[in-house]
């Protein structure tokens, strides 16, 4: 499969979304990303049992922080998909890019245009 997804999505690989920290997500925004999302395994399918569930809570925390400082919480998101769902991966990338495009550029400033963390 050679699927296209928007080139503005920069991928940061991690062994498991359980490794993704609140600070990683905030740093992406701080450095100018217009949005940041975590693509983790399907709930219940984590190789390390609860990595993706921990990531989900951290994304929720980041949304709260963004809201507190006056940014749209929709600029952070958690998605779940399996490694076999390549089509879904591309779809999510398009979906999230579209969402961010509607929100407009982050008022924080320019830099990388979008970031993603995937496992």
């Amino acid at each position: 499969m050679r699927l296209n997804y928007p080139s503005n999505v920069k991928i940061v690989n991690v062994p498991c979304t359980g490794r993704v920290d609140i600070l990683h997500l905030l740093k992406a925004v701080e450095d100018g990303a217009d949005g940041v999302y975590v693509a983790g395994c399907l709930e219940g399918d984590c190789h390390y049992l609860s990595g993706n569930l921990k990531a989900k809570k951290r994304v929720a925390y980041v949304k709260k922080v963004l809201e507190e400082i006056g940014l749209e919480p929709e600029r952070a998101e958690m998605y779940n998909l399996s490694a076999a769902q390549g089509t879904r991966f591309a779809e999510i990338a398009r979906e999230f890019t579209e969402r961010i495009r509607e929100l407009g550029p982050s008022p924080v400033g320019s830099g990388a245009k979008s970031g993603a963390e995937a496992a």
Partner: peptide, 17 residues
Amino acid sequence: QKEVGILASALKIARKK
């Protein structure tokens, strides 16, 4: 240390905004 990093980042984002 961890919370210091998070707060610093959040404050910096807010001020950049």
